[in-house]
């Protein structure tokens, strides 16, 4: 039987696979995909043997910096990331949380200076496995399920 691709193949670029369906649009916004004019194919609720349902994003001719890509680990640490060249997967990347996260997460403490002053937020990742962040300023700890993106 012919294997049918659910989303068109990519000649060159980055394919992000196995995205939990409920996190797909958060990944779009984390990578700021709405701001780039590369050709982007987004699929959601696709069949997945591993996950049941999944999301996938393919971005043509775009290769992300390590720190950009590692942001995804905040919400979907289990995605697979493939670098495609000439229709072939040339590299599979692991994503890992960085030690520090600047700007993309909002502090949940309304009395934190970062919510009251035009400034960047900054968090220390104090537990990479459980995804626990600590605000550099007010010292509040934020668990994975409490993370709110800016």
């Amino acid at each position: 039987m012919r294997k049918e691709l659910q989303v068109a193949a990519l000649e060159n670029g980055t394919a992000i696979d196995h995205i939990p369906t409920e996190e797909l649009f958060k990944v779009v916004s984390l990578l700021q995909l709405q701001k780039i004019d590369h050709r982007i194919t987004i699929g959601n609720n696709l069949r997945s043997r591993k996950m049941g349902k999944k999301g996938i994003i393919k971005i043509a001719d775009k290769f992300f910096r390590e720190d950009e890509i590692n942001r995804i680990a905040l919400i979907a640490p289990s995605v697979s990331l493939n670098i495609i060249k000439d229709y072939e997967v040339v590299e599979k990347k692991e994503i890992t949380l960085p030690d520090e996260i600047v700007e993309i997460v909002k502090c949940n403490n309304p009395k934190c200076i970062t919510n009251n002053e035009p400034m960047k937020t900054r968090f220390h990742v104090i537990d990479k496995e459980k995804v626990i962040l600590q605000c550099h300023y007010c010292e509040l700890k934020i668990n994975k399920d409490e993370i709110e993106l800016k």
Partner: peptide, 10 residues
Amino acid sequence: RHYLEGSARY
């Protein structure tokens, strides 16, 4: 002294 937390660090 400030009522906002993290103000002195900033």
